[in-house]
Write a protein that binds this DNA or RNA. Sequence first.
DNA 1: CTCCATTGGATAGTAGCGCTCTCCAATAAT
DNA 2: ATTATTGGAGAGCGCTACTATCCAATGGAG
Lengths: 204, 204
Amino acid sequence: MSMKISQLSDETGVARATLKYYLREGLLHAGASRGRTQADYDASHVARVRLVRALIEAGGLSLASVKEVVQALESPPDRRHDLLGAAQCALTGSTRAEPVSCPRARALMNDLSWRIDPGSPLLTDLEHQLDAADAAGVAVPDERLRTYATSMHEVAQVDVESVPDDPQGAVRQVVVATVLIDPILITLRRLGQQDVSAQRFGLD
Amino acid sequence: MSMKISQLSDETGVARATLKYYLREGLLHAGASRGRTQADYDASHVARVRLVRALIEAGGLSLASVKEVVQALESPPDRRHDLLGAAQCALTGSTRAEPVSCPRARALMNDLSWRIDPGSPLLTDLEHQLDAADAAGVAVPDERLRTYATSMHEVAQVDVESVPDDPQGAVRQVVVATVLIDPILITLRRLGQQDVSAQRFGLD
DNA sequence: CTCCATTGGATAGTAGCGCTCTCCAATAAT
DNA sequence: ATTATTGGAGAGCGCTACTATCCAATGGAG
């Protein structure tokens, strides 16, 4: 299972120049060097390239985010719960350290008795998103928000259940599943809307 | 309620040059022209600018998508069910007209008895996303997919219920809520994962 | 051993997006 | 009459994700 860069390119459908770029950017680990002008790539490189492409194309991640993800993949934390945080940190571009209060987000968490780190950037994310909806003239009533939260909690339940025990596979599962399933959920939401709407307002 | 462009800029926090750019790009309707070098803007312009910004910042839409959305806002279809399709078309960049078969997506819809137009681009989207997950080495078993679909159907139920009868407000609600609530759902999923994980693996 | 294709490595260039800056004559406000 | 502002249009900028070109070193085929 050993190949040169051209074969890697053929195998994955990614241009050689792009592969070299990924090597330079640290998205792809170097191959085993055979002399000065040759390196061997193997199945792990094929898998990595496919992962990177999936994260970019299906997950809509930037190269910088992909880099964080693959770095998280390479240094798995030992505590099970930390994994999630690492994966999530790698994903959100939450570089803002504003000590905002997030009244609505906190109220919701409290209301639902969710165990959330009070300093989690997810809370400020949520608050910003609610503010944006308000600014756009579409308020989300608390009750509706709670309903959404309940449904997403079911999703999260499945997410966490499906993490394998094997720590190696766990990181991969958590990180990749989180990113790649997001768009799947969104698409399912749209399809669900179609169904409910068809049911309610007739097909014609 | 009449203002010049500078006031509109002050009101919305968007630079004058950017507002002019939006005008050129058709994201913002022109103000009432008062002579050659003056136009009046009103509350509708403020609302539009805030909407555009929310779609871009919180919704993560490209200017091109925002343009489609605001055009959909300006020409509301009369049939209630069409609204949804228009909104959804404006959102996905599904410009691909590939007559793909989408075996898994169709099987799922069939399995759940959802009423979906067999030609819907959402089906090909879903199929692509499932393929991407496979390629990335993280398969989504059918059973898990069904569970996700069920949860998202609950979300969709709430979505459709909260559409007002008033056709003017309906378009706005559908379009904006769809785009702006997506990220909220994703954030709620992450928070839910935190909670489930804390519950399952301990807080320590 | 020779010769040509390929490789790794590096640099520069490209296309698209989302602004932002600069300039202008016309005009409104004072 | 003077000054500030406006609409309009074009060019330019910073960023991202590549892509293209060049190079000497080398590997493999004959």
